[in-house]
């Protein structure tokens, strides 16, 4: 009896997880994904990833401008590159796992 109900519970849990789209068949869930499945947590993480890349880009551009005594050319280039790196970070976060 005990074992039976255990098995049926596991089966129903699997079913429910599959319906909710949380568990693909035969796909291993990574540890981080499991912890950060909630939408606000993911949104916060995506936000920080994007902001931090932009911060690094702007800081690098500003530093290079100071170093070479140019006015804002590196800042403009690196702000754009930093924004792109932020999008890349977010894509790495949300992209479907590789087969």
């Amino acid at each position: 009896m005990g074992e039976d109900s255990d098995e049926s519970f596991t089966k129903r849990l699997r079913e429910a997880e599959r319906r909710a789209g949380q568990l693909e068949e035969g796909q291993k869930v990574s540890v981080v994904d499991k912890e950060e499945q909630s939408l606000p947590a993911l949104a916060l993480r995506a936000g920080t990833e994007m902001i931090s890349a932009l911060v690094v880009g702007v800081a690098a551009g500003w530093g290079l401008d100071r170093w070479f005594h140019t006015r804002a050319i590196f800042l403009i280039i690196f702000a754009l590159l930093g924004g792109s790196a932020g999008v890349l970070n977010v894509w790495r976060l949300v992209k479907p796992p590789e087969q």
């Binding site: 920080t48 690196f78 930093g82 790196a85």
Partner: peptide, 18 residues
């Protein structure tokens, strides 16, 4: 290459900001 480098350098920043 610059985008990848910036993405790599942003790791400690995002880790700490989070």
């Amino acid at each position: 290459i610059p985008i990848e480098i910036l993405s790599f350098l942003s790791r400690p920043v995002s880790l700490s900001i989070r």
